[in-house]
Structure formats: C-alpha cells, structure tokens
C-alpha cells in the first residue's frame, strides 16, 4: 500500500525536526509530508534546511485547512492511504505499521487509540472524551473508545471525501458522520507521549467549548447532513 504521512505543523520549530527524523527511522517505507500552516516561527526554514517534503501554506488556515491541504496532495498523488500525524511529538511512529495492518482487513478509518486494551482514566481531561464517545454511540451505535485521538489512518475513498468536501475537518464529528454513512472504523491500541516542547493548543476553557461544540454537532447537526 502506498501510504502518506501528513504532518500538519503550526509553530513547531522545537519539535518538527525530532518528529520527522524519528519518523524516517521507524518507517522508512512510507512517504511523508509536512504541512506548514503559516507558522510565524522557523518551522518552514527547518524543513527546507533538512530537505523534508513540505507544503508551505502562505497563510494560517487552522488544523482542518492544513490537514485538508495534505489530503488534497494525497488525492492528486493517488495514495492508497493517508495518516494524520501530530508534529508535537505526541504520536509515535512505531505504531504506524500496526494501523496499516489493521486497514488491510478492509477498514476505511483506523484510529490510533489509547484505550483499546488500557482503561480510560476518570480524570477531568477524559470527561470530554467520554461525553463525545457517548454522543457517537447514541447516534451511530458504535463504540469509539478514543474519539479525540488525532492519529487516524484513512483509506482511498476517505481521502477523496476529505480532499473535496466542506465540513470534513479531522475531528470526532466527521468520524461520526462517516460511520453513519457506512464507513468501517476500528481502533488499534497505541501509546502516546506528552508533547515535547511548547504549549498545547487546548486549555481548560477551550476544552469545554470544544466538547460542547462536538457534542451538539454529533447529536444534532450531523443528522441533517447528506
């Protein structure tokens, strides 16, 4: 399978080099591309200096826009599958092949999940994850244990959807929508790390709004989509 690893990066000058180098070491057979989302730091320069394949967005589009740029690239270059991979060092390259193996059993989306065999802790941070899981279960009847995991593998037909359509952000509500439309989704146990350097995008207030937005979107608005 011809696979592409898409690494959206916004102001990740401290992590990007380490992340891509570990990716090259652990999965030398896969192509990858860094999508620089209009960073104001040296992310693009570092990529050029190291010769990493780069899509350099001239303005900041946000995660959804940056990831879609990667999906468009994958669509045009005719890849069999594309994986979303964080530039902050959270995701571990060792698990990419596990995800691809799982996809070969006929899945459309494979999620790198923290909670297939491990138990989900009862922390405040995981409350949002539980609420979103419950919302997806209510509307689709499928249990997705780690809906907020950003490590997802998509097959060819999913690449097409993400590349060409509006409202296909790499978020749990899109996954829920796709499940409802008949996409086969499964999860593979992975480990994740805390981000290496720099600040996470999500603080407490943002997490709450994110959770509310996702819940309303999954429970109500997704029902009216085609």
């Amino acid at each position: 399978m011809k696979s592409l690893i898409i690494i959206p990066a916004f102001n990740e000058e401290m992590n990007i080099e380490k992340v891509v180098k570990s990716l090259r070491e652990n999965c030398p057979n896969h192509d990858y591309i860094v999508v620089n989302d209009g960073s104001s730091d040296h992310t693009a320069d570092i990529c050029r200096k190291n010769g990493f394949p780069l899509l350099n967005l001239p303005v900041n589009l946000g995660l959804a826009g940056a990831f879609q740029a990667g999906m468009k690239y994958a669509y045009i270059k005719d890849y069999d599958c594309a994986i979303q991979f964080d530039a902050d060092g959270q995701h571990l390259a060792e698990y990419i092949d596990d995800l691809i193996e799982e996809m070969k059993t006929g899945k459309d989306i494979v999620i790198g999940s923290r909670f297939v065999t491990e138990k989900k802790p009862w922390s405040a941070r995981m409350l949002g994850s539980r609420v979103i899981s419950a919302a997806i279960f209510l509307t689709t009847g499928q249990r997705i244990k780690d809906p907020t995991s950003g490590m997802r593998l998509y097959n060819r037909s999913m690449i097409r959807e993400f590349a060409l359509n509006l409202n296909f952000g790499p978020e749990p509500d899109t996954v829920s929508h796709l499940v409802k439309r008949g996409a086969k989704v499964s999860e593979v146990q992975v480990q994740m790390q805390d981000r290496m350097e720099g600040e996470s995008y999500l603080n407490f207030a943002k997490s709450i709004t994110y959770m509310l937005r996702m819940t309303i979107s999954i429970l109500i608005i997704q029902n009216f989509r085609k």
Partner: peptide, 20 residues
C-alpha cells in the same frame, strides 16, 4: 439553516450559533 447544512454550504462551526 439545516437545509443549508444539508447542501453543504455552511461550516458546522458557524451554524452552531444559529442553531442555538
């Protein structure tokens, strides 16, 4: 609003306000 979402003409994030 829901019709526009069905036709994929509005971003879901923006439609949340109108829904509420």
């Amino acid at each position: 609003m829901l019709r526009k979402i069905h036709q994929a003409k509005m971003q879901i994030e923006e439609s949340l306000f109108w829904f509420l």
